[in-house]
Design a protein around this nucleic acid. Structure first.
Lengths: 358, 358
DNA sequence: CTGTTAGCGCATTCAT
DNA sequence: ATGAATGCGCTAACAG
């Protein structure tokens, strides 16, 4: 391919002058600049950033590692990262790990080999290995999603514990007393955190806790809901740890002849953004995923370009609690108590956005 | 960062020996190899592929450019490409263009600057500019999606024209006579091709053609369906050019009090794969998107590694026609004729897979 | 089996 | 305002 010397030769200047035209045009006289630009156009010259990267020790490439690309969540992360990266002139190498910690390390290594200027990681687990690997290679990294216990690293996340509590408390306020939690894999932090928030809210209200751990899929949601709803004292409401689980649970309810929300209320996390869905159904928590990913990308770029140094920052974004059509006070017969007064005020507030928290 | 000379010094060998340990271990004695490997581990050395890329003139990076990442389609493309790339040791730079031809060229240029070894393009339009730009830079490229009239380039696609015909003919066989087509933007080839297949089938059957061009979104589908269904002679069936349009059309039908399929049959393209959906609703065409993307990636890699040269290949994948619950013979009153015999055999064959074509 | 030389494309540094 | 020398990290080609 044509290189900077070819251009220089054609314009009858030194390669250095061509370089200046590209990187610092004002330092070149208008005359020679014009000549060089013509040569560039004539030869269809495209600068080689591999050479540049070697010399400048910057590749202008960022790495993004997500767990599961089939999750709409990941798509929003990709959008957020590429948007922020593009705005700063970076491109993005994309990798996904299919929930495997080994694959995560493998992909990160591959990114380091390519000498990306920084890494965005939506991690499988919150073990320190991945972050420490990248940091040992002196590349900035930001974690998307959750706290990395005790690590000195930039983090962008929501207060999931509080969000889970508010979902649960909302159901309790509606009058529900028998509320089950359907979560994801016990190995995944978000699954555990969300279950923990549920547990706290239930315990504080003096109610019994019922948690099932499965996977973040509709199938798993279906199965978990099936066994939960067939249990002796059938719950009148479910807290699910993801939209996929909620979908499966709704199917299960329908298969059992239960109407949502009349016979069963369902709440969920990771709701799709309202502006993407015509007629949202599930009451649940919405995270500003794309914005969070953009913010994380900015943090990484700040460090890569030397604008920021020092200790890791922990940026917590507000979640939104949206009330839609999947929740209602419990019906009379199976519930152990009536709907309390606080629920009455909310009854009928369909599609109301309760607002943000934290 | 630690480089190959640091490792060499620590192992008391020449840098070349370290290089050999990494690239051709058998050419090094067991003894020295062990020493070098220790040094690598001690120093946490990760080879610099930027330097390697400059020297070998191969980056082991591929570029993937898709139009719209919010389309589940794009996700399958990403999966297919990353899978094939990873299997061959390549990583993938990902870019999306939001349906802008300018942005497409811009992203391609950025990929060329990074000296990717090859490009996968799911193009906005089938104009030659993008392909020609990449080819002029002597990088292999494969086009995902549709034919590039007269260009000498690797293409991976389906026979969309035939697929559109078969959708339409299926409806005609069911007994429908008044069938409208809701398509995407007239600027986008797939939209036009799908409309063309519909037109041919209708014309051959001696039926009138009604085509609306809009966008590939639920909102647009809703609007197009609304005006189509309010027209004087209301159609008894719709052919939609994408799943998004079909969703909007179904909403519109529901808003007008029409039942699907009793009062209105709907068929679609770009159906999600059956194994991803619990209880598929739409009768329509399914493309093996991920497999196509993988195949395109293999084609690019074959050229990048010199295994293949010569003229562009046109690889056409079979589509699958899945009959689900959104289609039925027309009801008696508004239709001009009864359901013919051929439709009777299909009536009730819900969730049947009709098989593949071409 | 191991080492030396040289250069991939570019930009920093210094000189003019 | 422009150019020459040098080296970023690595490996092909050759030498021993």
């Amino acid at each position: 391919m044509v290189n900077i010397r070819d251009v220089a030769a054609r314009a009858a200047v030194a390669p250095m002058t061509v370089s200046r035209v590209l990187n610092n045009p004002d330092a070149v006289s208008v005359d020679t600049r014009k000549r060089v630009e013509e040569a560039i156009a004539d030869l269809h010259y495209v600068p080689n950033m591999v050479g540049q990267g070697l010399r400048k020790r910057r590749t202008m490439v960022l790495g993004l590692v997500v767990s599961d690309i089939t999750n709409p969540f990941a798509v929003q992360q990709i959008q957020g990262v590429t948007k922020a990266a593009r705005a700063a002139g970076y491109t993005v190498i994309f990798a996904h790990t299919e929930h495997s910690a080994d694959e995560e390390l493998h992909q990160l290594r591959s990114l380091i080999e390519r000498r990306v200027d920084g890494v965005l990681l939506s991690p499988v687990y919150n073990t320190p290995d991945s972050v420490e690997f990248v940091q040992r290679q002196r590349r900035p990294i930001a974690v998307l999603g959750y706290d990395m216990a005790g690590l000195d690293v930039d983090v962008v996340r929501c207060d999931t514990d509080a969000a889970a509590r508010s979902l649960t408390e909302f159901l309790i306020d509606l009058g529900h007393r028998s509320i089950a939690m359907l979560s994801g894999s016990e190995n995944i932090v978000t699954a555990v955190e969300r279950a923990r928030g549920y547990t706290r809210a239930m315990t504080e209200a003096g109610l019994g806790v019922r948690i099932t751990y499965g996977r973040f899929t509709p199938e798993s949601g279906y199965e978990m809901a099936m066994s939960a709803l067939r249990a002796p004292e059938r719950p009148t409401a479910l807290v699910t740890a993801s939209n996929f689980i909620a979908l499966g649970a709704a199917e299960a309810a329908s298969a059992l002849g239960l109407r949502v929300p009349e016979d069963l209320s369902i709440t969920t996390f990771d709701n799709a953004r309202t502006d993407l869905v015509h007629d949202p159904f599930f009451t649940g928590i919405v995270q500003p995923v794309a914005e969070m990913a953009s913010a994380g990308t900015d943090m990484v770029i700040e460090r890569a370009s030397g604008q920021v140094a020092g200790p890791g920052r922990d940026r917590i974004f507000p979640t939104t609690f949206e009330v839609h059509r999947s929740t209602a006070p419990p019906s009379r017969e199976p519930a152990s108590s009536r709907a309390p007064s606080s629920a009455a005020t909310r009854r009928g507030h369909h599609n109301e956005v309760k607002g943000s928290q934290q």
